[in-house]
Amino acid sequence: MTKDILTIKGLNAGYGAVPVLFDLDLTVREGEIVSMVGSNGAGKTTLLRAISRIIPATGTMTFDGEDLLPLKPEGAFSRGLVQVPEGRQLFGHMTVEENMMMGANRRRDGGVAESFERVYALFPKMKERRRQLAGNMSGGEQQMCAMARALMANPKLLVIDEMSLGLAPVIVDDLLAILTDIRAQGLTVLLVEQDVFAAFSVADRAYVMETGRIVREGPISELANDPAVRDAYLGAEH
């Protein structure tokens, strides 16, 4: 009954002649947190680049009922497909507020002031730091700033790449709690993570990727008890 916001079928993508993703299927439904896990070099970031239309791809990709493949990155962005990239990629010499304004770059709906309030309510620290240069903040603050910037675009689907990378566990927990809040407000999230524990703690469903292919998928309750997944990704911590 909930509709699909992102549907991917038979996706192939890579860099020049080097294929990275093979015949990949993925669905994200409205209101879900879906997570994509997999080890280094599995192709997670490559998938997100294909979704955001940064790299060419073949197959079918539908976003909110519209064919995603012919769109340019700015087209995907202005339709509400918004990415928090790996490594945050902030505009380091701009203030937190200016970074957030870049998130609202393409909005013409007059709701930017209201978004500022809503996002500052989620990230009170960003309100305190709004005049600070983004490049001068700690890793956790930078991740918050990157998420705040993305939320300013009023996304239909928020795609996050390696949210937890390089952050202390307490900060990761904070961010996960915020993600849950954001979802409660109705936002759909695709969360790419190497930290399977973190990902599974907030997601409804997950996909497991290995060398460019989906090898497992299902609800978290199922995957967390799947012996293969436990051995490969949750083993050390169980």
């Binding site: 940064i54 990155p73 700015e74 962005f77 990239p85 902030l90 870049m102 910037r149």
Partner: peptide
Amino acid sequence: QNLVAARLYGV
């Protein structure tokens, strides 16, 4: 400052 992010953010 950051071409990658600018492209992702509608530029």
